[in-house]
Nucleic acid binder design. Structure first.
Length: 440
RNA sequence: CGGGGCAUAGCGCAGUCUGGUAGCGCACCUGCUUUGGGAGCAGGGGGUCGCAAGUUCGAAUCUUGCUGCCCCGACCA
């Protein structure tokens, strides 16, 4: 993409409503535009990041064996009356009456819809296990939306739902998601720590929040330092095999949010392993048995011919929230520092002297080669001054910058800069290209 | 939902206390000079001062009501 033909409204000063760093940087970098409290337009740059995160989430869900579908944003109140949640949910649910006076709602989650889909088609234990997921916009009419994308009212969520014949199968389904989540966050450049979560009135031990550490996190968290460096399974992990060693390696170490915190257990750790920090919740998984299958009649015939309600679990990742979370975890004074996996463009090329033939030619060569290599470059071909271009490129945080100017070209070199480290080196065009396109 | 704050040009702000018909920086447009870390000079465009009533000869400024947004707390991907 050539910047002169793109839509990237960069702001020098952040609007005053933005307080936390990720919100400020997203507004300044022209990624989002607030339309209402907790409701945002995703501008082109923000949309590119959202799509990249979404795709990584999707790949890891698929790898674990979950199957994607797409459920509607508008749901019928009748389904929610079946589960008993229509009255229970409260004001967070946005309720709408259509032209025929039918009660509708903007889905805050999709247990009811997915259970309805399941009961319509699945009749036999032989069709299980099954895990259905979708990546869809949700709406929760939060009392106090805040922190930009961290707590919006309209947000993009991946929500998966598992169906099993027995508790043993449900645990297996839970473990698959547990491992898929570890892999997902790892690929996003984040260190996420699973923490035991309150299961509420449903009970059961199977509930974890995935938390990333960031000073601006919403909740206080406590954990064993060893959790920060535990190995995460590779892409070759066998999801049909025994995942409990992996899960146990995480769950056997102390980790809790403040509401689940056990001071005594925490203090039993050696002092140097105690981590007390702030955290951002980026995922939540739990197993809830027959809470929905029972009242909604989602049953399968067992081998003996008797019908039994299925055991369910649900697994959420806040996809749009992750944009904010990644920025909270990865930025400096100059702006965002994108992990390579989610960067909106792979490489930024700065043309310091648009209109000068040698510089233009070098930029065109780089641009063409990077496009061919699939690196999706952004070429700043505008006539802004060098300082402004450097500042903008640092702000939007692309992993690599190639700076092309007449002085360097006179010596046959361009400057290659790594955004994360600030490291700069003077290289020939070919060497810079090779460096940027080599496999990480 | 309790507590606090803000609303003046696209963004950041001054002006409000003490009423006299709106200003600064950035951004934007034109021209010239400039060009390796947010350029300089000159000229220019853009605002029903959140909305509505009221007080007054006169309201951004005073009064009342409303709306929107932000922050702290309780709750959530």
């Amino acid at each position: 993409m050539r910047l002169s033909r793109y839509f990237l409204p960069i702001l020098k000063e952040a609007p005053k409503e933005a307080e936390i760093v990720s919100h400020r940087l997203m507004l300044r970098a022209g990624m989002i535009r607030q339309q209402n409290a907790g409701i945002y337009t995703f501008l082109p740059l923000g949309l590119k990041v959202l799509k990249k995160i979404e795709e990584i989430v999707r790949e890891e869900q698929n790898r674990s064996g979950a199957v994607e579908l797409l459920m509607p944003t508008m749901q019928s109140a009748d389904l929610w009356r079946e589960s008993g949640r229509y009255d229970a949910y409260g004001k967070e649910m946005l309720r709408i009456v259509d032209r025929h006076e039918r009660d509708m709602l903007f889905g805050p989650t999709a247990e009811e819809v997915v259970t309805d889909v399941f009961r319509t088609y699945v009749r036999s234990y032989r069709d299980l296990p099954l895990n259905l997921y979708n990546i869809q916009w949700k709406f929760r009419d939060e009392v106090r939306p805040r922190f930009g994308l961290m707590r919006g009212r309209e947000f993009l969520m991946k929500d998966a739902y598992s169906f099993d014949v027995d508790q043993e199968g449900a645990i297996r389904a839970y473990y698959k998601m547990f491992v898929a989540y570890l892999r997902t966050y790892k690929r996003l450049g984040l260190t996420a720590i699973p923490m035991r979560a309150d299961t509420g009135p449903i009970g059961g031990k199977l509930s974890h929040e995935f938390i990333i550490l960031a000073s601006t996190g919403e909740s206080a968290v406590f954990c064993d330092k060893e959790l920060l460096d535990l190995p995460v399974p590779g892409a070759d992990v066998d999801f049909d095999g025994d995942l409990s060693p992996v899960v146990d390696s995480f769950t056997s170490r102390y980790a809790a949010t403040d509401e689940m915190h056990d001071e005594a257990a925490f203090n039993a750790l050696p002092a140097e392993r105690r981590v007390a920090a702030r955290g951002i919740e980026v995922g939540h998984i739990f197993s809830f048995g027959t809470k929905y299958s029972e009242p909604m009649g989602a049953k399968v015939a067992m081998a003996d011919g008797v019908e039994k309600p299925v055991i369910m679990g649900s697994y959420g990742i806040g996809v749009s929230r992750l944009i904010g979370a990644i920025i909270e975890a990865s930025h400096d004074d100059a702006g965002i520092i994108w992990p390579d996996s989610v960067a909106p463009f792979g490489v930024g090329i700065i043309n310091l002297r648009p209109g000068e033939p040698a510089v233009e030619a070098a930029c065109d060569t780089l641009y063409g080669a990077l496009v061919a290599a699939g690196k999706d470059p952004l070429l700043d071909d505008t006539d802004a001054r060098p300082g402004a271009k450097f500042a903008s490129m640092d702000l939007i945080g692309l992993p690599w910058q190639i700076i092309v100017g007449p002085k360097g070209l006179a010596d046959g070199v361009v400057e290659l800069k790594r955004r994360a480290t600030g490291e700069k080196q003077l290289l020939s065009l070919e060497a810079a290209l090779a460096r940027v396109t080599e496999k990480a």
